[in-house]
Computed example of a mutant assay.
Amino acid sequence: MKPYTKQQLALRNGQDREEIWVAYQGDIYDVSASRMWRDGKHYEHWAGQDLTEELAEAPHTAKVFDKFTIIGRLEN
């Protein structure tokens, strides 16, 4: 799986490029097709970031990521 840096992930925020990506537990997901991530924002969460710590505050579980494709791994 292709590795991406935090800086590369940050560019996929729905503003700088068409791709809308988020990371969770080291995996990077393409959420571009989701209407919930339109313009790179989902409620108070922003695309192009690692959402691992923020998930605890979400009204859903990590299962929400099952419907999205993993396109890479986040480098440390």
Rank of each mutant, 00 (worst) to 15 (best):
G26L: 11
V22L: 07
D39I: 01
G26T: 12
Q15G: 03
T69F: 01
I70W: 02
I70M: 02
T5M: 12
Q49L: 10
S34E: 10
L9Q: 10
E54P: 11
T61L: 07
D50R: 14
L11R: 15
L11W: 09
I28S: 06
A58H: 00
D66K: 06
Q49I: 02
R35T: 13
A56N: 04
Y43R: 10
G40Q: 01
G14M: 04
A23G: 12
L9D: 11
T52G: 05
G48S: 13
I20L: 02
T52W: 05
S34M: 07
N76L: 11
A33N: 13
T52C: 10
L11A: 15
D50K: 13
W37H: 07
A23Y: 07
L11V: 13
R35N: 14
W46M: 04
D27Y: 10
W46Q: 06
L9A: 10
W37S: 07
D39T: 06
F68L: 04
F68N: 03
D30H: 09
T5H: 03
L55D: 02
Q8V: 10
I71R: 01
A62L: 08
T61N: 12
A47D: 08
A56W: 00
I70N: 03
G40D: 02
A62E: 15
Y43T: 00
R38Y: 08
I20T: 06
Y24G: 07
Q7E: 15
H45Q: 14
Q15H: 13
Y29S: 10
D30R: 06
R12F: 04
I28R: 08
V64A: 15
V31F: 04
